[in-house]
């Protein structure tokens, strides 16, 4: 959309100045801006060079930045996809542990993102957990919410986060019970919950035991003789709570 102000690539982008000196407005598609904003969080050190080369060539060939099949655009899309996936996994796999502090209860999590996403994704946790006081510690950046504003501090270590939480035992009980041993599909599980995340997921430590026990549980169910039906429960009888 040439000529529209919101499409101007301005401000915080790497400078794509004319070598001759006279600055000219650089017009890029809105979708490209969104894509660049994601890709720039990627941990690949070449992301800036890639964006620069696309912007440079995009001046002479405006269609380039809209073409999803061009080789560099494919790479940019892949970077954006990786960042989006990392963000989604952060929303999913952050696990808070509650601790008492002099200022009251605080929820603290340790998470290891692959890309530079902590600042961009803090808003998700702020919107969801505005009523709590929380900190998300990572090896890249840390985010803290005190009920008023999100603040960021430098990287932390795993040992800075609490080591356990009282609810985790119940959570593991749930994880074990909702699993259906007759449908064992560990590859599908690992595709969506790669092993690199397991060390920070309290439920992951029981996965090996669940997998080992599954086959025997399945065999027992397939081999069982039907027992005589129980006497029918009467309407009105509640089981003991």
């Amino acid at each position: 959309m040439p000529g529209e102000a919101p499409d101007l690539f301005a401000g915080d982008a790497p400078p794509a100045a004319e070598p001759a000196g006279e600055p000219t407005a650089l017009v890029v598609p809105r979708d490209f801006l969104e894509l660049a904003e994601l890709a720039i969080r990627h941990s690949d050190a070449e992301r800036f060079a890639l964006l620069y080369s696309l912007l440079w060539d995009g001046r002479r060939d405006p269609g380039l930045l809209r073409n999803p099949a061009e080789a560099r655009m494919v790479r940019l899309h892949a970077m954006a996809r990786a960042v989006r996936r990392d963000a989604h996994k952060m929303h999913a796999f952050v696990r808070f542990r509650e601790i008492d502090t002099p200022d009251g209860e605080r929820s603290v999590a340790w998470f290891e993102p692959e890309h530079h996403i902590v600042e961009a994704e803090a808003g998700f946790f702020q919107r969801r957990f505005a009523a709590l006081r929380w900190s998300i510690l990572t090896p890249r950046r840390c985010a803290h919410w005190d009920g008023e504003a999100v603040t960021f501090t430098a990287s932390a270590r795993r040992a800075d986060a609490p080591a356990a939480d009282a609810a985790e035992d119940l959570w593991r009980t749930y994880f074990a019970s909702i699993f259906n041993p007759a449908r064992l599909k560990p590859d599908a599980m690992r595709a969506e919950m790669p092993k690199k995340y397991w060390k920070n997921l309290p439920e992951a430590r029981i996965i090996p035991a669940l997998m080992q026990g599954a086959e025997a549980r399945m065999r027992a169910m397939l081999g069982q003789e039907p027992r005589a039906p129980a006497r029918r429960q009467k309407a009105g009888r509640d089981p003991a709570a």
Binding site: H91, F93, N180, R183, D187, A191, L210
Partner: peptide, 13 residues
């Protein structure tokens, strides 16, 4: 939607 975990049956929790 967000899947917070996956059980060994490959299903989303």
């Amino acid at each position: 939607g967000i899947c917070h975990a996956y059980a060994p049956d490959g299903r989303c929790i």
